[in-house]
Design a protein around this nucleic acid. Structure first.
Lengths: 213, 213
DNA sequence: AAAAAACAGTTGCAAATGCAACTAAAATGT
DNA sequence: ACATTTTAGTTGCATTTGCAACTGTTTTTT
């Protein structure tokens, strides 16, 4: 396991001391488990150290939405901005999570740990990455049409993976829940795009036509 | 003008010294101006000190999308995650913006300014707020129906303003561009909602029925 | 190895949304 | 005070998307 970004530049020993100040806890979860962050733990943030998870919301009619996807080093927390719409974090693989008090992180404790500020910097970097990920997601969801959403998402993936051929991190089923569209309508649109030569696909494997430049 | 959150806990004099390390610049813009952040200024972040601005994207077909709204203390930067889809920040009121090098903020310079870490903490707080705002936006855009988007947005506003009656920060026209839906379809849906007693509205003034609890 | 479950893919029909072209009202400029 | 521009609001028609009910394939379970 790669060293988590949150620990960069801090020795293990010092980290242990520091994390006690922040009331840190480390938990492992099995695939399928829900990562619980109680509503009253408002000022806690979590970081995914290992595994893969998704922030999921169910509508009353059963519609499922994948609001966010978490890979290692993803920071999350202060969930339920919209308290009534309970969303939960569900592990799609075995996960390990560290969580600690955001309040104590940004409001110095009396111990004055020497590397406290390094930790703050690390958290800032993670949070900046998260804001970028959220922005990208908005870019995708803001597209007016199904085709627009598909294209925006595929282009993003292609850029991330550095290749015009890549495999989806979801099942086709889940992709629809991520793009917030109907599954069969999405399949229909993908079929059309294939016919127009804008896409090749087989299962989760996607190939985009070479970009013009 | 209220003291910007980015400056909390730092004296003016020290700040001046520090901001030089970060190559900070302060600019004012008139209503209607575009805040330019050049593509090569990748590692700069900006903070809106005063005014109101919007991150806007135009589609080839002329469709306009309001991706984000900025009020004072909003942090932004590392724009164009999707470089080809040029989006720009347009001031909807007279604005003042400070921008500086993110790189120098998180990679200590040799001057070792005493309050550097306070500034990092301040930026972290702003960035956390931004991530929350982006999450809320995703909650809204992820709704499958026009009514769902309207409701989610109105409930968010009502919570922010602490009242079931509030006025929209947009024109009705702009609201549609913010919710990423067709304007006349939106009006039609609002009309239906009024008929069903889910909403009262007149121009920008909105009243929601009292929440049940 | 067989049965069950999950997943990819298809299609007809209904409903929601987008588009365009309006009218009326309000705000702005001269 | 009048003309111009912007904004709010409406409606018919075309298109897109959602829904439901399928088929066939792959994966998982027993």
């Amino acid at each position: 396991m790669k060293k988590p970004a949150i620990f960069y530049g801090i020795s293990q020993q010092e980290l242990d001391t520091m994390l006690r100040c922040f009331d840190a806890t480390r938990h492992t979860y099995a695939c399928g488990d829900t990562i619980v962050m109680y509503a009253n733990e408002y000022n806690r943030i979590g970081i995914l150290l290992r595994g893969e998870a998704e922030l999921i919301r169910y509508e009353e009619d059963g519609t499922r939405t994948i609001l966010e996807r978490y890979d290692p080093d993803h920071i999350f927390g202060k969930l339920s901005v919209v308290p009534e719409d309970a969303a939960s974090i569900v592990c799609s693989r075995d996960c390990e999570v560290i969580s600690f008090s955001y309040f104590h992180l940004v409001n110095r404790c009396p111990n004055a740990c020497p590397h406290h500020s390094v930790l703050v910097e690390n958290v800032l970097k993670l949070m900046t990455g998260r804001a970028q990920a959220l922005s990208t997601r908005i870019e995708i969801l803001s597209r007016r049409t199904l085709r627009g959403k598909l294209t925006a998402y595929f282009e993003t993936l292609s850029r991330e993976k550095g290749s015009r051929t890549f495999s989806l991190p979801f099942s086709i089923n889940d992709l629809a829940d991520y793009l917030c569209v109907n599954r069969s309508a999405m399949m229909r649109e993908m079929k059309k795009m294939k016919e127009e030569g804008l896409l090749q696909s087989k299962g989760r494997q996607i190939t985009l036509p070479s970009a013009l430049f």
